[in-house]
Each structure stands twice: as structure tokens, then as C-alpha cells.
């Protein structure tokens, strides 16, 4: 089906998406944006899994994607819940406001 597009394209796209995500996590201060960037990184990985699954004609990669999606859903649920609580606590979504856990 996707035989027309070479594997390297997928990998390149995945790398670009991952880098954007990682850069967002590192640079942005808004907690919601960071969560979204984390999602983006995971989906970049998912893309790699699916691409290889198709390329190698193996279902394993797709199973992994389901796993990752489940984990991501759970993570979003917990992460957003935390964010809501943090927001109630400090009325802020800036991640640098929350630094009371330190050595």
C-alpha cells in the first residue's frame, strides 16, 4: 500500500516530529504545551513503529503502538488531573512556579 513511499521518509518525518516535541518540552514553560509536546514525541515513536511494521511485514510493531496509545491515554489522564490540581493550588500553569520539591 505504502510501498511507493520509501521507509526513510517515514523515519525522517518521525525524527522531525520527535525533535520538535523534545525541543518543546525543553523550551516551553506552559505545562499544557509540555504535555502536548510529550504526546508528540510519543506519536513520533508510534510512527516509526508502524512504518517498520509495514516494512518488515510484522504485526509486532502495531501491537506496540496500541500499548503506547494506552499508556499515553493514561498519562494524559493523570497529567491533566495533576495540572488541574496544581492550577487550583497556585493558579498557574507555568512549570517554573512548581519547584518546591528540591534537595
Amino acid at each position: 500500500m505504502i510501498g511507493a513511499v520509501p521507509l526513510s521518509y517515514y523515519l525522517l518525518l518521525s525524527a522531525i516530529l520527535f525533535t520538535i516535541g523534545a525541543g518543546g518540552v525543553l523550551i516551553r514553560r506552559n505545562a499544557i504545551i509540555i504535555l502536548m509536546c510529550v504526546e508528540m514525541m510519543m506519536n513520533a515513536v508510534n510512527l516509526t513503529f508502524v512504518a517498520f511494521s509495514s516494512y518488515l511485514d510484522s504485526a509486532t510493531g502495531q501491537i506496540f503502538v496500541f500499548m503506547v496509545m494506552v499508556v499515553a491515554a493514561v498519562e494524559v489522564a493523570v497529567g491533566l488531573a495533576l495540572l488541574v490540581e496544581l492550577n487550583r493550588h497556585k493558579e498557574a500553569v507555568n512549570i517554573d512556579e512548581f519547584n518546591s520539591l528540591k534537595g
Partner: peptide, 9 residues
């Protein structure tokens, strides 16, 4: 311990 400053980023 100064490295562990609480800033997630």
C-alpha cells in the same frame, strides 16, 4: 544537592 533545584525543565 544544588543540582536538584525543582525546575522540571
Amino acid at each position: 544537592s544544588q543540582l536538584q533545584n525543582g525546575f522540571i525543565s
